[in-house]
Write a protein that binds this DNA or RNA. Sequence first.
DNA 1: TATATATGCAACTTTTGAGTTGCGCAAATA
DNA 2: TATTTGCGCAACTCAAAAGTTGCATATATA
Lengths: 106, 106
Amino acid sequence: MKQDIFQAISDPTRRAILTLIAIQALTPNAMAEKFDMTRQAVSKHIKVLYECELIKPEQSGREIYYHFNAKKMQEFDHWLAQFRQNWKTQFNQLDHLLSTIKEQKK
Amino acid sequence: MKQDIFQAISDPTRRAILTLIAIQALTPNAMAEKFDMTRQAVSKHIKVLYECELIKPEQSGREIYYHFNAKKMQEFDHWLAQFRQNWKTQFNQLDHLLSTIKEQKK
DNA sequence: TATATATGCAACTTTTGAGTTGCGCAAATA
DNA sequence: TATTTGCGCAACTCAAAAGTTGCATATATA
């Protein structure tokens, strides 16, 4: 099943995994040790993250190091962009409102 | 129940609602017309979005207009910030790698 | 005042997803 | 070669979440 990046990031454990491997690539076993969770449970999270390309595997003998794929994370940034202008505008309007109230109090 | 902003945004319908009302405030009925979905289903999504403060209600007689709360969306931006430097670094490294390959070809 | 409209809440069903146990395969090691 | 280790896949359980129907409440309108 093709995974949705938004759905992938909605899980706290997967967000923790991303934060960890953004610093250093890890094997599934290493991740399982970090969280109080079986290796298989971590393996499922890895599958989700892999299918939406947020992580990349690097085989090394029988071990697999999973790396963070920063490029994919930019999709979020692009989605957010449609709201960024919006929040800047809302804050400017708030500033204006506050100064108007100030004026009225004088 | 206190809702998680990541979980709130993971649902496609809720993302569509946010995109709509970022442009113009809408009533629950108006939203239900946009999607092929009962009013009650939309109402539940509204509840989720409201509980994590992504939208704000504005009562007008018996109608309720829901507005987009841009400020809350910034929480995403803050979470993304921890990766932003990371992806810039990865791209710089890629640039470096590409120019190295270029040099070798000469 | 009677009726229609806009909404929220509760109970229920169905679907999805997180986590477990059990298994098989491939690589390292004795 | 036999055994251990690292990993993925499949079947299962259980909890959460999406969507439905039904009902209650408040406001507008005839």
